[in-house]
Write a protein that binds this DNA or RNA. Structure first.
Lengths: 242, 242
DNA sequence: TTTGTGAACCAATTCGCGAATGGTTGCGAT
DNA sequence: ATCGCAACCATTCGCGAATTGGTTCACAAA
């Protein structure tokens, strides 16, 4: 899924063809374990529509970020896999949560600082929507997805493609399967309200174009995260500042 | 080649088998344009030695970092290609030199700061050797290799595997083929002495365990680089500090 | 005219299989 | 014991056929 794109969509697409509505509804039932949809030819005949009509519907779903397609490969639900995947898996095996927080503590406040200077009004509105999604999330897994989307949106708003790539690497390492149990143990009802308030403080600082405040708010947020998470891994919280 | 490893080697390996000496001598003449050596079986018969003796020699060369091997693929001279390659090429196509310096200006001083706290005496001695290699380099291409090795050694000394991975990505983007002509134009005899002096200042700060001075020296170095290079690309020098 | 349909073709990818290659083991000679 | 030789294992490559998304075209339907 791509939470960031979903919320950015208008809800008035029902005037589209019937194929789109049918496809959107059955999307989660059609794909296999790997998220792969049947080939376009099979899917078209299976749904009783022409291939061209099917492709128009798929174009909409792709623009919404619900699916991704690649010639010769197939059509898949979810987000297109990133080139950072292999590198992130390799790094995840050689680093540890303390190092990840040490890096985040230096990178993410800088991204927030730049976002305060460069974020558009759409960026800021989207950040607020994403923080609402975090607050209203029904379960921990979706909450993690929205939280990741918010941090990514801030990184995007910093307006530096290389910095965004660096952030993506860090984020993928953080979310590596090897540390899944740690993330599950870190889920903490009491801390949720704190996180949402800290997110709001970061967004407010960006909205008021205050780079120093944005960086400080982000630093405080990541420090809170590290204090809540690292002890669960039996690790010390690093003292170094940004 | 792996300049960092080469200089770290002791010179007393001549008591090894004759095959090793022969192989080490002819190494640069045996590989093809891609750095590939002949298959072990062919190479063994070609050198008139048994495959086992050849493999023992290759093990030494691999440990020295002069070659790398992979089952089913072959044996190659030089450094094993990094997983960061694909991602770096992709990022190089979406970023630009200004963004690269913006990121370096935030990442490398931090690495130098950490190196001041964590570098070993071997690290520091190696840094000085590498700066001498830069000074004594015969041509610009090898000078670039030694310079890269020095910056990498500083990143290694920071003692954070994830940060090292981030630095590797940035470095590979910086060295992307697409910007080769820019790097060539940036070669400047007059600036060489400045760079070597700035490197020495960084190493001195690390050696005296002064994190702030190390970070400041690195910041000054990268600012000098950006002032010398970015105008060649018709770009403004970014003002933001670390 | 406009739109949709089916078919054919293009381009990128995958799959299967044999060959090549580094990694490993075992046997026999020295 | 050590060395040389051979055989075998695991991974990768190369190539061709099949698969799959991307595109074009002619024709029919609205």
């Amino acid at each position: 899924m791509n939470p960031a794109e979903q919320t950015a969509l208008p809800e008035d697409r029902e005037n589209s063809s019937r194929a789109l509505a049918v496809l959107r509804e059955r999307l989660s039932a059609l794909h296999d374990a790997d998220g792969r949809l049947p080939p376009e030819r099979d899917l078209a005949t299976g749904l009783g529509i022409s291939r061209r009509a099917l492709r128009r519907a798929l174009e909409v779903l792709e623009a919404e970020g619900l699916i991704w397609r690649q010639q010769g490969k197939g059509t898949f639900v979810g987000n297109r896999p990133s080139l950072a995947g292999d590198l992130a898996r390799d790094l995840a095996g050689r680093t540890n949560p303390v190092e990840v927080f040490e890096v985040r503590l230096h990178v993410e406040p800088t991204l927030a600082r730049h976002a305060a200077l460069r974020a558009t009004q759409q960026d800021i509105a989207q950040m607020r929507r994403l923080n609402d999604r975090i607050r209203d999330a029904a379960d921990d897994d979706s909450r993690e997805l929205w939280d990741e989307a918010l941090h990514r949106r801030i990184a995007q708003s910093a307006g530096n493609a290389l910095f965004l790539g660096v952030h993506e690497i860090i984020d993928q390492v953080r979310r590596d399967e090897a540390w899944r149990s740690l993330r599950v143990r870190a889920r903490n009802d009491a801390a949720r309200a704190t996180y949402i308030a800290q997110h709001a403080a970061i967004i407010d600082a960006i909205a008021t174009r205050d780079p120093a405040a944005a960086a400080e708010a982000m630093t405080a947020h990541i420090r809170t995260l590290s204090h809540n998470i690292l002890p669960l891994a039996g690790m010390e919280v690093p003292l170094a500042g940004p």
